[in-house]
Design a protein around this nucleic acid. Structure first.
Lengths: 236, 236
DNA sequence: CCAAAAGTGTTGGTTTTACACCCATGG
DNA sequence: CCATGGGTGTAAAACCAACACTTTTGG
């Protein structure tokens, strides 16, 4: 950060003429109905009125970008303390017809049934399958594509997958979650071996019966287990 | 991106009150004197006058953030068309004492001997070893630490290392480059086998003698070779 | 002919993949 | 007792890590 542009040679305040509008947009993923969903809002105003978009909002002068993203997330889902990670910053001059807008994109993972609340600038908020998306406003299709790529990548290299499941889950549920996100079948025995050897799961003393089969052991994610196992993929 | 904050209900223009100053800062890496160097500028103005900082500048309303980063890079080094990648966006409210400034950080890799040009807001620009850094202005120590981490990571998983060498290079030079950045010795035979099997190098028909030993084959990087070899580390 | 740097294969251990049957429960 | 879903081991292949000598040149 230098201070070339500001006109004041003393450099201890900032010129206002070159400021930009900055938004924090959050790609919120969720698993439901055996599908990977993303939360979209239907825009209630121009531009792109009536089109679906990734939820987001302007970053306030007094809040950090992370806080702005958390605020958006809470406005749309009512949830706090969920997995949230900065993705990429999109800043082409013409990406918003209203003027220069820079978007810092985030992605979030939320678990369980999550009701949605449309913000006051949206006519609706709804979960959409990432495999059957409507046309999106702005460059949001690019952002979503990038978010999905990053989610898949993280799933293979880190143990972030638990964030898509409720507190307690069975190994079959976890495997299904991985399969839905990665879009491929995994081997049951290899999956179990790896996930257990990674040491990020703790057995609970509870079980759950699914239909009329043998009840499954419930596990929970060990908080504070190392998130990123350097240079060792969790899955092939 | 929603349009909650702007006051105009029609939403087709942008309110100016909530705009932020945005800079593009570039961590420029270079190899020299058997060391990994980073280009720093000595600030000519407050705040942090006289302290070293990562070069950067405000993003103009009409240019993309990438273009701003490229412009900074060219101003400091005179180079264009070098490897440049967005790193992360830093946006805590108090990170700049002048007011709210958001910094989109990039990292760049430049090859060969690169003279530096101090910008007009800096009293000097110089290469510093990443292993012996001075105190840095703002939160630039964090940015640099993050950049170095990312560079190392990329070196292991992609073939980005060539960007730190001139057009033609020997395998020993390439290995040395990797060793300097990663901070560890590599096995010569394993290194050569892997880098050649990766198929990203083309032999030239030239050789170069280093001192009085046997001359080494010169290679160059195959442009358009896949940059990212998914799920296969180049080095252990 | 000697010093200096380039170049070259093999082996043992580890990791990964592929694959099929028995177990516990509810109806 | 049977249908349903949960749980388990092994063998072959691929991959990785460690290791030392020969080749080519210049002085």
């Amino acid at each position: 950060m230098s201070n070339r542009k500001p006109a004041n040679p003393e450099g201890d305040t900032l010129d206002c003429s070159e400021r930009l509008a900055v938004t924090a947009d959050v790609v919120i993923f969720n698993l439901a109905e055996q599908d990977l969903k993303v939360l979209l809002v239907c825009r209630g105003r121009p531009p792109f009125k009536g089109q679906w978009a990734i939820p987001g909002g302007f970053v306030d002068v007094h809040e950090s970008i992370d806080d702005a993203a958390r605020r958006e997330l809470e406005e749309e889902t009512g949830l706090r303390d969920v997995y949230l990670e900065q993705l990429y910053t999109f800043g082409k001059p013409q990406r918003d017809p209203r003027g220069r807008v820079i978007t810092v994109a985030y992605f979030a993972l939320v678990a369980g049934e999550v009701p949605t609340h449309a913000g006051d600038d949206a006519t609706a908020a709804a979960w959409h399958s990432v495999y059957a998306l409507p046309a999106l406003a702005f460059d949001h299709a690019d952002i979503l594509k990038y978010a999905l790529q990053r989610l898949r990548y993280k799933l293979e290299y880190t143990s972030v997958g638990f964030e898509l499941l409720p507190n307690e889950f069975t190994l079959t549920e976890l495997q299904t979650a991985y399969e839905i996100v990665l879009g491929e079948k995994l081997d049951k025995r290899n999956f179990r071996r790896r996930i257990l050897e990674a040491g990020v799961l703790a057995e609970t003393n509870r079980q759950r019966a699914e239909g009329q089969g043998r009840p499954a052991q419930l596990y929970r994610y060990k908080k504070h287990a190392v998130m990123e196992v350097k240079a060792r993929r969790l899955f092939p």
